[in-house]
Structure formats: structure tokens, C-alpha cells
Design a protein around this nucleic acid. Structure first.
Lengths: 215, 215, 215, 215
DNA sequence: AATGAATGAGTCTTCATTCAT
DNA sequence: TATGAATGAAGACTCATTCAT
């Protein structure tokens, strides 16, 4: 797990050159601990120790503990949504994914890769969203408005093509998203003993059958 | 919300006569606050004030803050699963639900009623499960072993009848559960502007089509 | 140890008929715990539990925790001194103990029996005396004035007889008492591996030689 | 009394440069209060106030209240024993103290000076030893094993020279130690009205006579 | 006489944050 | 930039004591 997380932080450090070495250590340590024990139950003292940094150093970079949390979660949220907000998505769509199933498959694969890279940060996000209105607002701002809009277009696209049922697009999205998230959660909880390829196929079969257009 | 929660606590107080009046006030207040701010961010001082009780009184009844949390969540978990562990479930099944769809519909309705009554406690449970291994263990103990077993029987029952697909029962259960939980979550988040009957129908249509047996 | 202690409490209960059954249980439990953990570190809650009594019951009989302590220690102190305050001590002395050595031997034996019976209470007394002026005052009142007076007479008696050195009686008493108490303390600390008869003989030899009159 | 204690702390502060100014204030205040009221009855709040320091500061330096106690008592115990563990003690012995009486006198003087400097800490040690197994263990470790061994050698040395009785060395040590400690305790309790020179002479006379070799 | 629920002041300890160096 | 000592408010929890039953 530590391995995967390194990637995220490495990206951060490579992309954002303004970050001090110590600052990076703080971000790594905080991510680790927030994921494990939760934001409220993690003390800045612990983070400092784990990061090999003086406690004061944390507050030199982040005015408050909460700012530290947001500085971890916010960029993830932006990145998470990036692929869906790219302007020429429609073009890509039309060309690349003749069938809804192909789109589904591509999206699942893409999200899976993202999750593997950002597992801890996503975990923090999900754990903390009930307690911080800032997170909820960010989520609504980004996902609720932008992503949902995109997805609606996409769903309508395939509905027009007659490939999927004519339910309201939001409902289609909800059913699809629930299924995929249920898959990720179960996989994450089960851990081993999990035949990935098989399960994905079954899930896609289920989705395609469930969403198929009434003849 | 307070309204619905009263039900749970009222049951508690009526069934469990060993509870002091003050103790009940503590349970109500703690439930309220844990749901709202989370366990770690709620202080026993706050709970005491909200309950109109001295702080010491809390600890006279619950040795630790965590014990208070568990005393709220544990009984809910037991109750939550009760309907699925009733001994003559199979009999009921055979007689009452000729078709899988009827079973689904009944279960959704039943769970929905349960949720409405215990919204806050369920919320606490979901929010806190990442941070307390006791909750995870209880969940595995009860759900993982008992409920999953029951559901497996049920799914196999309908598979044999040829009503649903021959995927592994656990997969069927996962797909179904994901869909239903996604429905509850969305409903809870959206709040208003929600056509319940319509959404349930669409969900069931989706599930039935998705799980239909390949003839 | 519990065994020996029972004796003390049994005496208490037999002599003092005004004591309730519960009250006796409280005294036994409190003695046990005060000896083990010290007065300040023992809670009335613990005492109540150990005594099998409600916490309120303690305060029905003893207005404060300190009163409970004193009600344990004070009677012991009175009893401890009793033998030395008996009016006809001199008579007894003259007749029974021709030599100082016999007096010493008798006293050591007598004190030893007392200690065995009241080990815990004496322990409490010694542990708590630095922290409670009441205990110091009681001790001065009883020992400082009464016992010291008696002993002075006794020492002078043997000095006149030419059996012991002519140092000031208080010094003789101090040297003798130090030696005897050192013996008890060491015995108590060592526990096993202790040849009682031998050690007492050596101690008496030491004392007799050390206190012998310069001819 | 405060005067004498300053010495100890002053040494601490001069030798141990790692101690903060505040930390020293904490040690002084804690020593004062522990001696006066006992460990269990002294609150960290009191200590902080007396030290002119925030309560949190105490716990920045000492993880627990008990650690504070030990950090006061442990170094004293080490220092207390130092003179007896010096490697060339035998050499010193042979050359400096031809007679056991001289050795006794030197030791009493030496211990007296030590006590005067460390009165409070020794008091704390004696008061708390019944309640903290750590103190008992430290004492056994240091005194029981190291010091007792040295003293045995010394006693045997004078026994071989025919200056003192042939009782088992441990018994000789016990008798001597009891006498000396009885002297210190009485002196401390009596306070004034105490002719030091006279009392020491009488004590040594007593000891020398009591321990003299049987011709 | 005995209970045990209730109290609120007090306990030790932790925390996020500040600030002089 | 980084430190780490210092803070004081707040945290969970304990305590001796009271009081209605």
C-alpha cells in the first residue's frame, strides 16, 4: 500500500516544485495516518514524528490541521475528475467507443488505475466527507455539476444510439455507479481470493443486460 | 430526524427497563452528536450538556466513551439482521414469494422501514466502521457469517427455480446489494426531488433484467 | 496475611457489638486496600466493591474517607500501647524480669505477636504517618508522652541495678528500639530464608553487649 | 529546607545541561510537594502553579506523573550509592581506616552530608517505596546486589583483622544500619534539642561494644 | 440501615497552535 | 526554512460525597 501511495506523492513532488523536502514528508505521513486513524483521531504530533519533522514545521506550511487535510484531498479530487472534463471528450467518445460496453470497460479500467494509485487519499476523502462541509462543497462543485453533466451527455449519446434503456440519464448513472463502486468496495474489503477478470466480466454482463434498451 | 430517532430510543427504553431516565437521555444525545460530528470529534462534555446530565454520569453507565459508542451501535446491528436469521425463513420464502421480484420488493420495503427508524445509528455505524475494529468484527461475525449464508440459500433457491442467472450467489448478492445501497445513499443525499415509487420500479426493472437467467 | 488480619477484625467485631455486618466488611476491605495501595491511591469505590457494599454505605458509617482511615488506625495504636500503660507494670517488672535481658526477650516476643496479628494496620500506620498530622499527634500523645515515660522508668530501673550503661535513658531506648525495629523490617522484607531464633539471639547478644554497664 | 534542596537541583542543572530552565523549576517544585504531601496527593496542577509553568509543560518533559517521580528519585539513588561502588574501595579501606571505628565514623559523616543535601528526595523515596514496585526494584538492583556485596567485603575485612564479632556479615550490617538509621530518623523527628556530637559518640560506643569480637 | 444513581470539582493527559531562536 | 519549548484550553475519566428511595 505504501508503495502505491508513493506514486501520488511522487507526482506531487515532481509536478509541484514549490514543495520543500520536509513538506513532502509531512504530506506522506499525514496521508498515511489520516487514512488509518481518521483525521480527528490523528494528532499533529504523530504526523510530525512520522514525518521526521518538528511539529512547528507543519504549521509553517499549513496554517491549520484542516488546511493540511484539504491540501491532501483537494488535488486528488481535481485529478480524479480531470478525464471527464477534458473538452474534446465527445470527440473521443464518438471515435473510440462504438458501443456502450466498450465505454464501460474503458472507464472501469481507468478508474481502477486511478484508485490503485490514490487509494489512501480516496479513502481519506470517503471517510471524512461526512464531517467536513468543505469536502462536500468541493464534491458538489466538481462532481455534481461538471461530471454529472458530462455523463449525462454520454448516456444520452448511447440512448440515442439505441444501445441503452431510456430511463432518465441520472438514474442510469446512479445504477451504473452503484454497481461499479460496489465492485471496488467489495474488492477492497475482500482483498485476496478475488478473480478480477471474472468479476469484471460478470459485472459488465449484469450492467449491459440491466441497461439494455427495451426492444 | 430527531423524530425518527426517538423511535429507536423509545424501543430501547421500553424493552430495556434497566435503563435509567438519565441513561436514556445520554443515549439520545450521544446518538445525535455522533451522527452529526463523528465519534472522535464529539466530546463527552458536549454529550453531557446536550443530555442535561453531569459528565460523571456518563461514565457511571459507560466505562469509556467507546463503550458508549458500541452500546449504541451494537444493538442496532443485531436488530438489523434479525429478520434474516429467523429460523423459518425458508418456509416463508417458499410460500410468500413465488418470484424473485416479489422477494426483492419485500426486502427493499423492509430495509427502508428499518433505515427510516434507525437512520442516525446506521449513519454512525457507516461513519465509524473504518476506525473501530470492534465494529468490523461485529459486522463480519453477524453479517459475514450469518446473513451471507442465508442469502446464499435464497439466491440458490431462485436459481434452481430458473428465475435468475447462474452466476455465483455471492456475486449476485453483491450486485443486488450494491444497487440497493446506491439507491438508499442517493435518496439520502438528494433528499427532496425524489420520486420514490418511480425510482424503486426502475431499480427493480434494472435488477431483474440484469439478473435474468440466460435461457 | 489475610488470615492474620482476620484476627484483628474479628476482635473488633466481637468486642465492639455496635458494628454492623456491613461495617465490618468495609473495615476489612479498607484495611486490605490501604495497606496495599496507600490511602490516597485507594478509592472509596474500590473499597465498596471489595467489601460487597454500596458506596453510600461507607459514608453512612464514616463521614469522610479520612474518618475511615482513622477508625482503622486509632484503635490499633491504643491497643499497641496498652501493655505499657498497665498500672502495675513496675510490680510485674520487679517480679518477673530479674535481668534486662529477660525483659528484652519478653518484649520482643510480645511485640512480635502483636505485629503478626496487626501487620496490615501497622503497615498502614507507618505508610500514612508522614501525610496526616492527626496520626502524628495521636502518636506523640500516646507514645511520646505515655510510653516513653514508662520506658524511661524501666531503663532507669535496670541502670540502678547496674545492669546497663548509664547513657541517658532516651538514648538507650532509641538504640534498643532502632535495633528491634530494624530486625522487624528486615524480617518483613526478606520474608523467607530467615532463621528467627538465631537472629533474635544475635540481636540480643548485640544489644546486651552494646548496652552493658562500663564497670 | 528549601535551602538544602537547592543544592541537589543546582547540581542537576549544572551537570545536566540538557535541562530547560522550566524543567528545573518543575523538578524543584515537584520535589517540594511530593515530600510534603506525598506523590498521590500532589496534583500536577499544583506542581505547575508552584513551578510557574503551564501544566502542559510538565508533560512535554515527563510523559507521566510517575515518570516525573522517578526522574527525581532515580538519580538520587544512583548518587547515594556511588561512594560504595568505587572500584578501589578496598585500597582506600586498608590505607585510610586502620580500625572499624574509624570506618564507621567516616561513613556516618559521609552519609550525614549526603542526607543534608538530599533530605527531601530521600524523604520522597522512603515515603513512596511501599507504593511503587519500580522503586523497590531499583533499590534491590542497586543496594541489594551492589552495596550489600561491598559491605560484606568490608565487614569480612575487619572480622579477619579480629576487630569485630564473627556473626554473619549480613547480620552485622543489619545491626549497624538499623542503629545508624534510627539515629537519623530520631534526629530528623526531634529536630532541635539534639546534641549531635554527643549522640554520635554514644552510638559509636554502643556499636563498637555490641560488635566487639568475643575475646 | 442500605442502596446506587447522580453530581461537579478535580485528575492526569493530549492537543493544535505560537513564537523566540 | 526549520526548530522544539511552551502554552492553555480542552479531553476523557475519577473521585468523594450527597440524597431520594
Amino acid at each position: 500500500m505504501t508503495e502505491q501511495n508513493k506514486h501520488l506523492l511522487e507526482e506531487m513532488l515532481q509536478e509541484d516544485e514549490s514543495l520543500t523536502e520536509k513538506q513532502k514528508q509531512i504530506l506522506v505521513a499525514a496521508t498515511e495516518m489520516f487514512a488509518e486513524k481518521g483525521f480527528a483521531a490523528t494528532s499533529t504530533n504523530e504526523i510530525a514524528k512520522k514525518a521526521g519533522v518538528a511539529e512547528g514545521t507543519i504549521f509553517r506550511h499549513y496554517k491549520t490541521k484542516k488546511e493540511l487535510l484539504l491540501s491532501i484531498v483537494t488535488p486528488m479530487m481535481v485529478k480524479m475528475l480531470a478525464p471527464f472534463i477534458i473538452k474534446d471528450l465527445n470527440k473521443v467518445l464518438d471515435k473510440e467507443f462504438e458501443h456502450f460496453e466498450d465505454f464501460l470497460r474503458a472507464m472501469i479500467k481507468n478508474r481502477q488505475e486511478f484508485l490503485e494509485k490514490n487509494l489512501k487519499v480516496v479513502q481519506i476523502f470517503l471517510q471524512e466527507i461526512p464531517f467536513h462541509y468543505e469536502l462536500r462543497e468541493q464534491f458538489i462543485e466538481h462532481v455534481g455539476k461538471k461530471v454529472l453533466g458530462r455523463f449525462t451527455q454520454i448516456v444520452e449519446h448511447y440512448q440515442i444510439k439505441g444501445q441503452i434503456t431510456n430511463m432518465p440519464p441520472t438514474t442510469v448513472i446512479r445504477l451504473t455507479a452503484s454497481t461499479i463502486m460496489g465492485y471496488f468496495v467489495t474488492k477492497h474489503v475482500i482483498g485476496a481470493n478475488w478473480n478480477d477478470v471474472e468479476e469484471i466480466n460478470q459485472m459488465i454482463t449484469f450492467l449491459m443486460k440491466g441497461l439494455t434498451a427495451e426492444n
